[in-house]
Write a protein that binds this DNA or RNA. Structure first.
Lengths: 224, 224
DNA sequence: CTACTATTCAATTAATTACTTGAATAGTAG
DNA sequence: CTACTATTCAAGTAATTAATTGAATAGTAG
């Protein structure tokens, strides 16, 4: 094989990873998996896809090594293969945010209207946690919280937030986070809290990005 | 628009970037552009694609903002839009290297056979340069060298290496680099030098990765 | 103004992809 | 062993993508 055939073959393999990331449904599945391992049935439910379609997409992700599986009885559990996959997804999202005008338009139209304050960077949140100066609020579903969360975070899903305000120290600022930097739930949580007169901001990233950057996490059991 | 429609629309935009990276030819064009700006005609020549096909692929890269253009007379010059695009390409390549078995097989079959020593990390090379302990050899074509290179690097294209050995200090180890971590030319340069009794190793990355990580560069003029 | 150069556009063809639907497979409870 | 559950497979359909080919467009030299 010549040098240029080798190079083309190598880039074709790289392109397989790009191809795996070229469908919106697969990206969404990756974001769900970034919170912790899930079964096919669970993924179909949260994503709104049919089980067969979900399975097809997961096969493609598995074939390029972005996810891996384990079996337990009838169920097959999928998980992200490594932190490098989270970092790739993050890099792709950041490039899209910076260079795709439609991303900026969508974010401005649907997110910035809810919270136009600068989000809190992860290292700043870590320091303020250590100083005991903030309440960290995780608004993901309980099973995602159980799979891993920011140390000291309280888990109140968004739908229950208004009826659980008494769990939040009124003297402290709340920093809310969710599955990723564009998860609407974190924005809505901040909006709700501010409407109730609380000081609230968002964390810059979601839980997977926090974890991938090596910051401490609590609650992880089957995620090495 | 509902929250789930918003999320799907947002991920569709992210998927557009993935789609741009899902073709081997576009990835190769990105690697060429990572060395410095090129015209459509030049890119068609080095990639072996027709001009029309090259132009089509460049349109797709431009539409998601991975590359940008400037005109000079008849010619349109394309360039990488930002260092974040280089970092995305690097993240994609690293995920493929780690998780796609065929990548490992190709690399082992065609590269490791030429150089199975550990490559030199960028920060180590920087330190050794400052200590004056190595000769840095850039084996890319002269126009890519002119567009930017590692400070102090000598430019000897591979085809001319054997007839220019006298340009290399026999007392110093040579560290060779090229367009990227899998560029065959760097491997062949090391192989050639070792056959001539010289101490030689490869830099871990290519020039674009060196530059994207903020290390000092020489020779950049039209690249901000 | 004409002829040439460089690039992009548009239509066509072949290949690939996404989803659906029904069948097949593997594991388990009774 | 049978019936059920969870998942994957395979075939079909519609949409999308990649490359080719020829036309169109924009800029320039003479």
């Amino acid at each position: 094989m010549s040098s240029s055939n080798f190079k083309h073959d190598l880039f074709s393999q790289f392109a397989r990873v790009g191809k795996a990331l070229s469908n919106a449904n697969r990206l969404e599945l990756l974001e769900f998996l970034a919170q912790g391992e899930r079964s096919v049935d669970e993924l179909a439910t949260v994503s709104g896809l049919t089980v067969a379609n979900t399975s097809q997409h997961l096969q493609q992700l598995r074939q390029v090594g972005l996810v891996s599986t384990r079996k337990e009885g009838l169920k097959v559990y999928y998980r992200i293969s490594g932190e490098d996959v989270i970092e790739l997804f993050q890099a792709l999202r950041q490039v899209a945010e910076r260079h795709v005008a439609e991303v900026e338009r969508l974010v401005n139209t649907f997110l910035t209207v809810k919270d136009d304050l600068e989000p809190v960077p992860a290292d700043e949140l870590l320091q303020r946690c250590r100083d005991g100066l903030v309440t960290v609020l995780d608004v993901r579903p309980p099973e995602e919280y159980a799979a891993g969360h920011v140390p000291g975070a309280i888990n109140i899903p968004l739908a229950e937030l208004e009826s659980h305000l008494d769990e939040l120290d009124p003297q402290q600022e709340v920093v809310a986070y969710c599955r990723g930097p564009h998860c609407v739930l974190a924005f809505e949580a901040v909006e709700t809290l501010r409407r109730k007169g609380r000081k609230a901001r968002r964390l810059e990233d979601g839980y997977p990005e926090w974890k991938a950057s090596g910051l401490p996490v609590e609650g992880t059991s089957n995620n090495e």
